[in-house]
Design a protein around this nucleic acid. Structure first.
Lengths: 239, 239
DNA sequence: AAGTGGTCTAGACCACTTT
DNA sequence: AAGTGGTCTAGACCACTTC
């Protein structure tokens, strides 16, 4: 009969996730040693290992042999391209430069409100920016954020921060992005988009609509990217 | 000093992959029980389990509790949407109908030859088809195949086969696709594409360039899909 | 009842990093 | 040398499927 049989290692996993959520261990900080956790929780080291294994495959933590297990962060080099999939057609992946166009408080469109799970009458933060690869504008982003979690976010803060936005979110606002859903379509550039991206008005753009999640099931960001795909592409691996 | 230290479980893994490649166990067939394999290879069951774990995460095999471990196949329902990412904007994922437009022997373009790793002077198989979702044409595919592995592939065979192409490839030609690299761009529809897909001539299309691999490192297929994204999108999960 | 994968334990030893 | 994660073993028992 036994429904809801929950294996020990999964309970341990949930326990560890809870402590990361609650701030016991922040991004970049080490977890206690496996043997310590095992003693503390009254289980074997193997069970703790299996729990941590699953956290590793979900990119919640990183193992470093001989040193320890650390809460994953978007700042470390290996994570730089985790959510950034635009690549030049030839040559190595390159880090883009970000130019913030505007930061405003703004009522969401119906579509955005639905995706973000907020009311239409609740103003959201709207960031507009351009990502440039080697001086060439490639991505025009509209980034919508729920205002509660991101109080104090200013244009200066954004413009002065180097590195991926999610690094800023996790260090300044305790919002760690874990996973995203992206919907990709193609659409002709509007006149404004064409001007900003420096392409002809009718150019076909790749539209990337992203909804991002933290530890919770509630969306924490909606991002609409309009991408030039002359000389660049969106790279995806299937398995 | 010990470089190239290769753990036992990885050796076991390679052994198992080799036996799948060589046809010892074909798609859909069961592997010997873990305990059997352990005895046979002179290792513990735990080591076999760890090897099989990695095969499971790579979708090479499927575990079924109480029954056994089976070589994964593209025929099983769970695999239907593994490599097919186009979804209707509203409602559930749907299986497309495939209409074969042509099957010809054809010299590859420079780009395709490079991706497939074949000579420009070697004729390849070129399949053109349309995928329709609920009667509406959405994807126009150009599928390039190296001719050696696909002798005997005809339009009749393709048209009569229901289900994903990769199911046919694995059952008829012993070619199992394991992983793909996709490069996505946006481009205006050509007149011919617009006619076939029943859209206006200047419509922006989502272009999906896919290179597929089997057990070997050699590409086994190049596929160029031109997708209508009015009412449909390409779905991707990042983590 | 028998056979399969799934969980859990305890302990040994190895590889790597830091002190 | 001490501490960490990484590998490997042997054995017990549980959950699920088939006979």
């Amino acid at each position: 009969m036994s429904l809801n049989f929950n294996p020990l290692y999964r309970q341990v996993r949930e326990h560890l996730v809870g402590r990361m959520r609650s701030g016991d261990w922040n991004a970049g900080e080490p977890l206690p040693a496996e043997i310590e956790l095992a003693k503390e929780l009254g289980v074997s080291q193997g069970t703790v290992r299996k729990a941590i294994d699953s956290l590793v495959t979900e990119n919640l933590v990183v193992r470093r042999q001989g040193r320890g297990t650390y809460v994953a962060t978007h700042e470390e080099p290996v994570a730089q391209f985790r959510f950034l999939r635009m690549r030049p057609n030839i040559g190595e992946p390159v880090q883009p430069e970000s130019q913030i166009l505007s930061v405003e408080s703004c009522y969401p469109t119906e579509g955005v409100a639905g995706l973000l799970g907020v009311d239409l009458v609740q103003a959201c933060l709207l960031i507009k920016r351009v990502l440039s690869f080697e001086g060439r504008p490639v991505v025009l982003d509209e980034i919508w954020l729920p205002p509660q979690q991101f109080e104090g976010l200013t244009q200066e803060l954004l413009q002065n921060y180097k590195g991926p936005l999610y690094g800023l979110f996790e260090s300044q606002f305790k919002v760690r992005m874990i996973r995203c859903e992206e919907r990709l379509t193609a659409r002709q550039a509007s006149e404004e988009q064409a001007r900003i991206l420096n392409v002809a008005a009718s150019t076909a753009l790749l539209i990337v609509e992203r909804v991002s999640f933290g530890y919770e099931e509630k969306p924490m960001e909606v991002r609409i990217g309009s991408c030039v795909t002359e000389g660049f592409h969106y790279l995806n691996f299937l398995s």
